[in-house]
Amino acid sequence: MIAQLTIEDLSLTRGDRLLFEGLSFAMGKGEAVALVGANGAGKTSLLRCVAGFIRPAAGDVGFGDLDPDEARRLGLHFLGHQDGLKGGRSARDELAFQVEWTGGSSANLAAVVERLGLSPLLDLEVRKLSAGQRRRLALARLIAAPRTLWLLDEPMAPLDMARRALFGELMAEHISGGGMILAAVHDPLPIKTRNVEVG
């Protein structure tokens, strides 16, 4: 399992444009880091780089002594702007798939459905759900499939006040259980975070 994330002298480019250079920080178990910076500073690109989608122009992303590829496939959750839910399938099918795909158990799934109040949504087609409902559906895999590192891109944006508080509790539980959260945010998260300026 991932016990450490090290960003070392990292530079990212998109096309010809340099997003940032020389970014270094490290985080360990039980830590939450908030990436802050203006629009277009490269927060999302940094998250995609940690997730292994974007190759850095220079520098390195390390996960302690773990093989990076394996660490990514087994040890982290990536929740971006898009949730990967299929509009034509029922919420129940999509939820079950996302949880099973990321290694969660069906016993966990039942508990999460209860906790996030998802049961009224399960029989609906995903395309009939609101943005906030879809986000709650996507959050379920974070809880039902235990993985150490959560990479979150503006996770709160579509949620209502009550759900923001609930998600805050879930994040606090994850951190106190030795998890790690790296999130790109504009509004501060409802948990104790260390800020890292990007760009």
Partner: peptide, 14 residues
């Protein structure tokens, strides 16, 4: 387009 490929590349299987 809907981000499912991100999820598919971060599951257990290669």
């Amino acid at each position: 387009e809907d981000g499912a490929l991100d999820l598919l590349s971060l599951g257990g299987p290669a």
